[in-house]
Nucleic acid binder design. Structure first.
Lengths: 333, 333
DNA sequence: GTTCGCAGTCGATGATACCGAGTGCTAACG
DNA sequence: CGTTAGCACTCGGTATCATCGACTGCGAAC
């Protein structure tokens, strides 16, 4: 446990370092709120904090930098997620006021909103497909041997698969197949429906078979779409070009980021710092996540990826506000 | 016009600079194929090339770097797009052998393929929506006051819009609206259909009205989806972090890149170097593009964005091969 | 026209000195 | 006994300077 002054000193160092990216010297925070002692006293406490692992000294005669443990303490001892600036709050309000229509587009835009707010990279994970209930199935012919299977799910997601038919098939046959597939799938989850045993005349129908088969593919891996944006903000946040490249490469492998975010939420965390992420390229990064809920059910995740010296209060405020508003907006209808 | 030796020297300088990113000195290319003179002779020619604007000298006693004009000459005097390595060719074959199913997914994967091949950022622009013919329209209810309009287009694209209904509407009404919308839209292009005048009982139907209205929105701006990948490759290609950030920001504004690519194709170009792009942040970049065709009709564009010192033969080969194979694959069905 | 030889240029590298921000420690202070 | 003032010390950053080496440009020789 840290005594009050040390706590304030640590807090001040973290804030200062987040703002300046420069090692923080004792004299810089001697007058910080809750401190107000001489720099010599601060030095003593900083040495102790260093010893206890909250701060780190790049070299003997330089200021201190927060360690992972230091950041962790900082976020654990924030009172509340911090307040958004008026401009940001206004931006969010404006966004949700005019947000309309299509789920995908809305999530894509939410991702942009979040990256604009934070200036870091934003990730939005859509509702998983396989748990939603099928509302409608239809097979549409595109050309004699090509058809498109379209399934509308209860959460507004549309699953589609191209079917390459072996024999020419006319519209009547496709319509018949649509009816049969509807009987099998509608009302089921996509997952259950795709695995259903089919008997009777439907089992003979080439289109029905192809359709069910195509739905099985990907249904396991499918975790909901991922919308990333604001990667250009990462270039500002780091100074080494190699580091930027590593993080970008990670973001390109969407499943890594998605499983990281899911893992964090499972552990009940909303912030992961450096090695807490478990991903080596993110050693100097931090992630802030929040689930969003539709009608009380958590269905997806939004998050922000930035440097370890992230503006945590701001990022937490942005993420939590946006996730709440997004959930509310999606629950409305 | 350049005499043969100067041409060979210029060619050698460009190749060397592309490979090493270092200014090229006269002695490095004295033994290059088609040159084989002493370094002094090379120096004379390089001075001339410098004077004529093909090469540039960062400072008095350094090697030469190609100018934009030099790169331009180089790509204009390539014989053919260059050959792909065996590994790359194999990678493309493997990809199109197992590529299956859904258009969107396929374009997304094509983008990844292209960035893997070139190590630069790849952009794939899908077929525009508004020119395709509507094959099927359906309205599916999601909740009492929320419905989803799904339109399947002839090119396999699925357009969808969320309809927020004013009054509770049951499935029968939605089905009726589906039928009416089908009568209006099927067989038309999306653009024409959305603008059609509606008369008779359909004009009274709230769902029909909402549906048509929702289709009008975005139909103008809509140029086909954009799939970007391989942005991490940009981090390797440039050394200044600020430059990477600028290019990333540009890529995030997809319409800028799309209109650039479209513009290039209109001008009949397949390569744009530096200021030829007309975009200031791309001053030290180059873009290689190619259209892909379905049944002889150009419907979309693929391209690669990298540094001005791009491996043009390789990039041209990759882009042209992939565009050809992609078109063939999409024409197959 | 080509090549050789050579003086000259200029960035890169490394040594050296210096500055200054910042520390740790000791002694004085209240 | 916690706090502070004072001070010696450390060490990265910057500037200066010399050296090195990769080049060039040019005049003279081939």
């Amino acid at each position: 446990m840290l005594d009050e002054r040390k706590a304030n000193i640590l807090k001040a160092v973290v804030k200062e370092y987040i703002a300046t990216a420069q090692p923080v010297g004792s004299s810089h925070i001697a007058n910080a709120p809750g401190v107000n002692v001489s720099s010599a006293t601060v030095r003593n406490d900083m040495a102790a904090l260093d010893h206890e692992g909250y701060l780190h000294q790049p070299h003997t005669s330089s200021g201190r930098i927060p360690t992972e443990k230091g950041y962790r303490w900082f976020v654990d001892h924030l009172n509340g997620p911090g307040a958004l600036g008026a401009a940001e709050a206004q931006q969010i309000r404006a966004f949700f006021a005019k947000a309309h229509g299509e789920l995908e587009q809305m999530l894509r835009d939410t991702s942009k909103l979040l990256s604009n707010l934070t200036r870091y990279a934003a990730v939005v994970v859509g509702p998983p497909h396989k748990e939603a209930i099928v509302r409608s199935v239809q097979v549409v012919g595109l050309s004699p041997r090509l058809a498109l299977l379209v399934a509308v799910l209860s959460n507004g997601v549309v699953e589609k698969r191209t079917l390459e038919l072996v024999s020419d098939t006319d519209d009547a046959a496709l319509t018949a197949a649509s009816v049969r597939l509807s009987e099998i799938l509608v009302g089921q989850t996509l997952e259950a429906g795709a695995r259903a045993e089919v008997t009777g005349p439907a089992a003979q129908d080439e289109v029905v078979q192809l359709g069910l088969e195509s739905l099985k593919v990907d249904v396991d891996a499918d975790d909901g779409e991922v919308y990333t944006s604001g990667t250009s903000g990462l270039a500002q946040a780091f100074d080494a070009v190699a580091q930027v490249g590593e993080v970008l490469r990670l973001l390109e492998q969407q499943y890594v980021v998605v499983s990281l975010m899911k893992d964090l939420l499972d552990r009940g965390l909303s912030v992961a710092i450096g090695t807490e992420t478990g991903l080596e390229p993110l050693a100097e990064c931090a992630v802030v996540v929040a689930p969003y809920q539709i009608d009380g059910e958590p269905v997806g995740t939004i998050g922000v990826l930035g440097p370890a010296r992230m503006d945590y209060p701001q990022a937490l405020a942005a993420v939590s506000t946006v996730s709440r508003r997004l959930g509310a907006r999606l629950s409305e209808a």
